[in-house]
């Protein structure tokens, strides 16, 4: 399949608000991304016309109850069958910020059973409490399983922003060790918070901006096709989006965020 034939669906509902810049990131790759309201997909029953599904950031349905949970439940109720097929076909799914919260609530991440009936992790209220908008450093942990980040060398440090109040990644306390081990065993750990030299945050604020367990910022499922993260790579796409670009003498066209999308190209061209 040619690149121009790839169809990306950026799915939104009321309260989604990072869809336009997320679609813009795909357009930079030369892929057409369409922003579609869940209501349209339900009406047209055409989710399976798309090759990639993206859940962008925002406050879906106001994030009432718990971030992402209403979107996740409604999606399951309205499009559950199509979504299951989508996942079983190993078509890529990306969740950014609120999208990550949706994927966790949907049981797709970490998705130890591909499509878990109940969430196996949680993105809890930040510690320290409250909304936090800042640039942080991430260390790439994936050994190649995550199809989105395959072009990023393991151990590379990347500079991107976070902006959320519920991003503290947690496993159930009693399964913490066991689940973490599985993340490593199955190469599902994709990003951890670190300082600019690549030293892990070890829970230290603000290097770890939300108190996440094991400094976890992003994970993928064991197939490597579903990827969720709290930071916003779409806001770190261009050099001029960086908070210190006026200090940099070399102005390369793209900032680190672009790398988060690049790897997808290879997978798509091979798969479809």
């Amino acid at each position: 399949m040619k690149l121009e034939e790839v169809r990306v669906c950026v799915m939104r509902v009321g309260g989604t608000n990072c869809d336009i810049e997320t679609a813009r990131a795909f357009k930079e790759l030369g892929i057409q991304a369409e922003i579609r309201h869940l209501n349209e997909l339900v009406k047209n029953r055409n989710l399976l016309d798309y090759h990639v599904l993206v859940f962008p950031g925002g406050f879906s349905y106001g994030d009432y109850v718990r971030a992402g949970v209403i979107f996740a439940r409604r999606l399951y109720a309205k499009l559950g069958r199509e979504l299951k097929t989508f996942v079983e076909n190993n078509r890529p799914i990306l969740g950014i910020c609120n999208g990550f919260q949706v994927l966790v609530e949907e049981g797709l991440l970490p998705g130890f059973e591909l499509f878990s009936a109940y969430p196996e992790a949680s993105l809890a209220a930040n510690i320290p409490q409250g909304y936090n908008c800042r640039w942080i450093y991430l260390k790439h942990e994936s050994k190649g399983n995550c199809i989105f980040t395959r072009r990023i060398p393991q151990g590379k440090v990347l500079y991107v922003p976070v902006a959320h109040s519920e991003g503290r990644f947690l496993f159930p306390k009693e399964k913490e060790e066991q689940f973490l081990e599985r993340l490593y065993e199955e190469d599902m750990l994709v990003f951890r918070y670190c300082d600019k030299f690549g030293n892990y945050a070890e829970g230290q604020y603000p290097t770890n901006p939300n108190g996440s367990f094991h400094d976890i910022a992003g994970i993928c499922n064991s197939q490597g096709t579903i990827f969720g993260l709290m930071p916003h790579p779409e806001r770190a796409l261009y050099w001029w989006q960086q908070p210190d670009w006026t200090r940099r003498s070399s102005k390369v066209q793209y900032a680190d965020g672009k790398l988060f999308f690049d790897g997808l190209l290879d997978y798509l061209l091979k798969k479809f």
Binding site: E21, R24, G130, Y131, C133, R134, H232, L237, W240, P243
Partner: peptide
């Protein structure tokens, strides 16, 4: 206070209220 406001959603803020490190 400024960190509790999302000052870069939409990805078009070229000069931010808080600059650099």
């Amino acid at each position: 206070v400024i960190r509790t406001y999302d000052h870069e959603v939409k990805g078009n803020t070229a000069l931010k209220p808080l600059h650099g490190e």
